[in-house]
Computed example of a mutant assay.
Amino acid sequence: MLKIGITGGIGSGKTIVCKMFEILGVPVYYADERAKWLTNHDLQLRKEIKELLGRQAYDEHGQYNRKWVAAQVFDNPELLKMLNSLIHPRVFADTDQWFLQHQHKPYTLREAALMNAAGDKNDFDSVIVVSAPVGLRIERIRKRDPQRNEEEIKAIIDRQKTEEQFASIANHTIMNDDEHLLIPQVLALHEKLTQQA
């Protein structure tokens, strides 16, 4: 089974591309969604997060307080690094279990915003990058999250890899720029990856 990473900046359209692959029967692991699930359900992780950030990391209902946590770490790279050092190993262990459950498939996708090139501290066979111009990404995010202003969105984009950095880790690129048709690109790549497997 091939292990394929899929990434791209916020607003690039990773999720819609992943949904297309799922329609084709490809299992997709959503790292950010699983991380959210684990912060709420992994008891050891909850304990470690509370020790790092305090009780406010969880709300009165016992749910992970993402907004509050994000505000604490947004301008504190050291604290963010410490938080990630708690969450990321749990997500990687969870991913390994998930891969085992899907090893009968020709290939699987692991979606994440943070990703290295294939073979660089990961066991990916290749990496797909979903790409879109920054202006279009901002427009999409504003439609999706109307409460966010352009400055907030630009601040998030500035903290992510640049398009050039994404391009440097890409073995395959899907252009989601409203000029290239998305479905033919996904179908062609699906066929190629299935043949490689």
Rank of each mutant, 00 (worst) to 15 (best):
K14N: 05
I16Y: 12
V17F: 04
C18W: 04
C18L: 08
K19A: 12
F21H: 04
F21R: 05
I23F: 12
L24F: 11
G25Y: 07
G25T: 05
G25V: 03
G25W: 03
V26R: 04
P27L: 09
P27W: 07
P27T: 10
V28P: 03
Y29E: 06
Y29H: 10
Y30K: 10
Y30L: 10
A31I: 12
D32K: 09
D32N: 10
R34C: 04
R34Q: 13
R34E: 13
A35L: 05
A35S: 09
A35E: 00
K36T: 06
K36N: 02
L38Q: 00
H41R: 07
D42S: 10
L43A: 14
L43S: 14
Q44P: 00
Q44K: 13
L45G: 02
L45W: 00
L45V: 03
R46S: 02
R46V: 10
K47S: 12
K47F: 12
I49M: 03
K50Q: 13
L52Q: 02
L52C: 07
G54C: 09
G54Y: 05
G54D: 06
R55G: 08
A57D: 01
A57E: 01
Y58F: 15
Y58K: 06
D59P: 04
D59R: 08
E60S: 15
E60F: 10
H61F: 12
H61S: 14
G62V: 10
G62H: 07
Q63A: 14
Q63V: 14
Y64K: 05
Y64T: 05
R66W: 03
V69D: 01
V69N: 02
A70M: 10
A71T: 12
A71Y: 02
Q72I: 02
Q72T: 00
V73Y: 07
D75F: 11
N76L: 00
N76Q: 12
P77I: 02
E78M: 08
L79P: 05
L80M: 13
L80S: 07
K81A: 14
K81S: 15
M82Q: 15
M82K: 15
L83W: 03
N84D: 11
L86F: 10
L86H: 07
H88A: 02
P89W: 05
R90S: 07
R90I: 01
R90A: 12
V91C: 02
F92Q: 15
A93P: 01
A93K: 13
D94I: 04
T95Q: 15
T95C: 11
D96Q: 15
D96E: 15
D96L: 12
D96S: 11
Q97E: 12
Q97R: 13
W98E: 04
L100T: 13
L100A: 15
Q101N: 12
Q101V: 07
H102R: 11
H102K: 08
Q103F: 08
H104E: 13
H104V: 13
H104P: 00
K105E: 14
K105C: 11
K105S: 11
P106I: 00
Y107M: 05
Y107V: 05
Y107K: 03
